[in-house]
Structures are given as C-alpha cells and as structure tokens.
C-alpha cells in the first residue's frame, strides 16, 4: 500500500495487467461461455444495485409512510440510507468490472453498441467515484449532477437492451 501511495500511476497499469490474461482466455470455447456469464452477472448486479437505491429513494420521498405510520417511520429509515448506498456502490463496482472482463474476453465481437455501452458505464462509474471521494465542493456537485442525469440512465438501459438483442442470439 505504501508503494502505491508513492507511485499512484502504477495502480492503473497493474489493473490493465490483471485484465490482459482474460483476453487470451476468451479465445477458447470455455472462455467464451464464461464471458457470456460475466455479461449476465454485470447486468444482474447493475439491476439489483440501482433498483434497490431507486426504490429506497422513492419510499423515502413519498408521503405514504408519513400518512400510514407517521413521521417516526420516515425518520426510522434514514439510518438505512448509508448501508443501502454502500450496497449500491459495491454491487455496481462488481457489475462494472464483470462487464469490463466480459468486454475484454469478447473484444473480437466489439461493435458500436458495445463501445457506447462501455462509454456510458465508464462515465457513470467515474462520476460516482468523484461524487464519493472528491473533497472539492464544486467537483462534488459536478459529480452529483452528472451521476444523477436521467438521460444517462435511459441511455444505459437502452444500450443494454440493444446489446442483448444484437448479441444475445449469437452465442446460443
């Protein structure tokens, strides 16, 4: 850890190195099957991670809880926010890296839709990291604005559906 804190540029290079064998592994038949599974893991974890946070925010914002159980219940769910946020971050990270491995394994199948998906996922991930770790106030607001854009979510869902439609039948 001391080494990485002194040489921050080494860490991304080592991460790249970690993913390189995946490309070679993806060449054989069994690797192809693993790559497809990784793609589905990525979609599944992304779905669970984002739906849990969206549902939690919807419940927190709606007045149903206030009407049924009074302000105690709505105040009672506030401490759950942090674990749910951590769950969202953790599962999305797993999904992102699973998707990245899936992409590297099947790099020979790369098309414009897959590339667009990679771009959108990376932008969401970077804005999320900025939102979580940036200490500068303006940068944090920038991360919040980019990460919470509705158009990004719509684009991501559309591209995932298009990716499944265009590549789903190829590996059966």
């Amino acid at each position: 850890m001391h080494f990485f804190s002194k040489n921050p540029k080494i860490l991304p290079l080592l991460l790249i190195l970690l993913f390189i064998p995946a490309v070679a592994y993806g060449e054989d038949g069994e690797g192809n099957h693993t790559a497809i599974t990784l793609g589905w893991i990525s979609i599944g974890s992304g779905l669970v991670a984002n739906l849990s946070l969206v549902i939690f925010n919807m419940v927190r914002k709606t007045s149903i809880l206030k009407l049924v159980g009074g302000p105690e219940i709505s105040q009672g769910i506030v401490p759950i926010y942090k674990p749910i946020l951590n769950f969202h971050i953790m599962l999305n990270s797993v999904g992102y890296f699973a998707g990245l491995s899936h992409g590297l394994l099947l790099i020979h199948e790369l098309d414009a839709i897959s590339l667009s998906l990679v771009i959108v996922m990376t932008v969401s991930m970077i804005s999320g990291i900025i939102l979580k770790y940036a200490s500068d106030k303006d940068l944090k607001i920038f991360g919040r604005l980019v990460h919470g854009q509705f158009i990004l979510a719509v684009l991501l869902i559309t591209l995932v559906i298009l990716h499944i439609i265009t590549h789903g039948g190829e590996f059966d």
Partner: peptide, 17 residues
C-alpha cells in the same frame, strides 16, 4: 448510436459544468 451516445455524454458534462 455511437454518435448519439457521445453527444449525450458531452452535453451532460457541458450542462453540469
């Protein structure tokens, strides 16, 4: 599709900034 994606991301970043 690629053009629309890149345009959307650029517009989101510019709008936020």
């Amino acid at each position: 599709i690629l053009f629309v994606t890149v345009a959307a991301i650029v517009s989101v970043v510019v709008y936020s900034a």
